[in-house]
Simulated scan of single mutants.
Amino acid sequence: MHFKIVPPIGARYWVGIAIASVCGANLGDATVDLLELGDTARLAALGLAFVIVVLANQLSSRGNELHYWLAILVVRAAATSLADIGVEYAHASYAVLSVLTAAILGTLLALRNAFISKREMLQPSYTDGSYWGAMLLAGTLGTIIGDGIGHAIHPVTLGVPISAMITGVAVACILGARPRREASVGTATYWLGIVAIRAFGTNLGDITAYLLSLPVSIAISALLLATVLAMWYKPINPEVTEARRGH
């Protein structure tokens, strides 16, 4: 399940993740609000979309960074759906769900660290099945946290913007504490950054959808993501990526 082309972790990557988080959150909401899919149907549709992206990556001779970003969008949308389903059926508070999800994510990352060599883990391009499972759980946790803070402050129209400010500060602190040259997906600060950005993206997605409508928010965030990635693009040699994996 390794993606042949994975964007290097740096400023461009984190900006892309932030925009993709907003777009993915809106896409997850769209499966219910616009497509009116049931819980099983929307998860199945997003699961199928992820499989298609993975197959496209595997069948591609040299790979394409687009596959990675499409996978991120699909996983982000699925995380939104999982969080919504969990809140609806678990009958538990946001705090309890956050702790449970964090525990599952921590367990998965611990198992990943135990069964994958440190050399492989520290490769920027190491995106196996456990990576995408962790990305899904991190997105779910971020969604629960973002929604939980926003809904704890009344009215919600005030709570969500306040939550966006809180999670935005958290993103700045976590990424600011991350070493500049740290390019691995196997570090704690990487996953903390993902969770915080997902929480911020959830809030910002709700705000833009409320102000602009869901379809317009999706269109603008998707266009912004494509524009930022294209204009900030730095070609990656897939042969170099494969060589790194082999060492």
Rank of each mutant, 00 (worst) to 15 (best):
A196D: 09
G168W: 02
Y190F: 14
I116W: 09
L214M: 14
I144C: 13
D206T: 04
L214C: 14
L158Q: 09
S184R: 04
H154T: 13
R180V: 15
D128R: 01
A170G: 05
D128E: 02
P124Y: 02
A170R: 06
N237R: 04
A177V: 05
A219H: 06
R198F: 13
D128A: 01
R178M: 08
V185T: 13
A199V: 05
G186D: 08
A230Q: 10
L175R: 07
A134E: 02
V156G: 04
T202V: 01
I116V: 15
M135T: 02
P161T: 03
G146S: 03
T202H: 04
S163Y: 05
I166F: 03
M231Y: 12
L223H: 12
Y190D: 06
G133I: 00
K234F: 07
M231D: 13
A170M: 08
R112F: 02
G139C: 00
P161F: 01
L111N: 04
L105C: 12
D206S: 07
G148L: 13
N237W: 04
P161K: 03
E239T: 12
A188D: 11
A188R: 13
T157H: 13
L141P: 03
R119C: 03
S130V: 00
N113A: 10
G106P: 13
T107R: 02
G129P: 09
G129S: 13
R112V: 04
L141G: 07
L136V: 06
L211A: 15
I153D: 04
H154V: 11
I218Y: 06
S221H: 09
K234G: 08
E182T: 03
K118S: 15
A226V: 13
G205W: 04
N113Y: 08
I145P: 12
E239C: 06
L122W: 10
S184I: 01
L211K: 12
E120C: 09
L122H: 14
T167R: 14
T167D: 14
G139F: 01
L229T: 09
V185H: 10
T107P: 02
P161V: 02
N203K: 05
L108K: 01
T127V: 00
W191Q: 00
Y131A: 01
V228A: 10
S213L: 06
I145M: 15
G205V: 04
S125M: 00
A110G: 07
G193E: 03
T241K: 07
I194D: 08
T127D: 00
L223N: 12
L224H: 02
A230G: 08
D128I: 00
V185Q: 10
A170Y: 03
W132N: 01
L122A: 14
P179N: 11
L105D: 10
I197R: 14
I144P: 14
P235R: 01
M165F: 15
V240Q: 13
W191R: 01
S184E: 02
A172H: 03
F200Y: 06
F200T: 11
T189W: 10
Y210E: 15
L223Q: 11
I145F: 11
L223W: 10
L229N: 05
D147L: 15
S184H: 03
G106R: 11
R178N: 05
G142V: 05
I104D: 01
I162R: 02
S130T: 02
R178L: 07
L192K: 13
L158R: 08
A226E: 05
I144A: 11
V171L: 00
Y190M: 05
T241R: 06
S217A: 15
G168T: 03
T187E: 09
